[in-house]
């Protein structure tokens, strides 16, 4: 198999007495959709936070494309090709939808020590902006303040911002949560299309979506990796069924 794009080696993180990551090792290969599942409080978000740089692990290492990024400052990671969406939507509420996306776009286009031209009127950025808006279906909302969007639309914008970064590895933290059935279907399609261009590490609770989308799945329980495998393997894994999928699955 090819070299992994992301390799996590024995990562541990505690919050006081809470063990959020415990010797987590994980490999994500180029081009795959890798799902991360586990019950509430299993440490999925915490793991994503460490990969993205929002949190520094207590021990262990993270390699991205062969580079050790364990302690790399947050802002440098996006330039290596890491982007994420947050579980708790964190768009910029007082900025308009297009300004939110523009920030993600201009972050990829060299420094922003540019003081004179109106950012939204720059043709090179405008093109990217239009396609970003369209991709997440927010063209109609372009000039609206992000705080006035519905919950689902905020989620779309959140994903749109991560995509506008043109990442090589996209970290998505429960992008479907609270989106409604229509939005979930749309987003699933989008993620499948993205697979052509980028690698995705996806945290999601909705098992149907996971089994439909993911090439491989890692199960996390109490901060520990229980198992990693393909959708079929996970579905038939006894420990997983017991620990996570619950016994009602057995009844089927």
């Amino acid at each position: 198999m090819a070299e992994p794009l992301l390799r996590i080696d024995k990562l541990s993180k505690n919050f006081g007495s809470i063990v959020a990551s415990q010797g987590v090792s994980l490999e994500v290969f180029p081009g795959e959709i890798h799902a991360l599942i586990g019950p509430n409080g299993a440490g999925k978000t915490t793991l994503l936070n460490q990969i993205a740089g929002d949190l520094v692990p207590d021990s262990g290492q993270i390699f991205f494309d062969g580079h050790d990024i364990t302690r790399l400052p947050l802002y440098q990671r996006s330039h290596l090709g890491l982007a994420r969406s947050y579980q708790i939507t964190s768009v910029f509420p007082q900025l308009s939808v297009e300004e939110n996306l523009l920030l993600a776009i201009q972050a990829q286009r060299g420094h922003s020590f540019r003081f004179w031209r109106r950012g939204l009127s720059i043709p090179e950025l405008r093109d990217d902006l239009e396609s970003s808006l369209e991709r997440v279906g927010l063209s109609e909302r372009a000039e609206m303040s992000a705080c006035n969007l519905s919950h689902g639309e905020k989620k779309q914008l959140e994903v749109g911002m991560a995509l506008a970064c043109n990442p090589r590895l996209l970290l998505l933290d429960e992008p479907m949560a609270g989106m409604g059935p229509g939005g979930t279907v749309e987003l699933s399609k989008l993620i499948r299309r993205l697979k052509e261009k980028t690698t995705i590490l996806l945290v999601e609770h909705d098992m149907e979506t996971i089994f439909a989308l993911a090439d491989r799945i890692t199960v996390l329980v109490y901060g520990e990796v229980v198992t990693t495998g393909t959708a079929e393997e996970i579905r038939s894994n006894a420990i997983v069924r017991h620990a996570y999928l619950g016994d009602e699955d057995e009844a089927c």
């Binding site: 400052p73 990671r77 996006s78 330039h79 964190s90 007082q94 920030l103 990829q108 911002m161």
Partner: peptide
Amino acid sequence: RENDKRMQSLGFP
């Protein structure tokens, strides 16, 4: 002003 951490995560020092 809105979210410093998020700006860093987008790639801004």
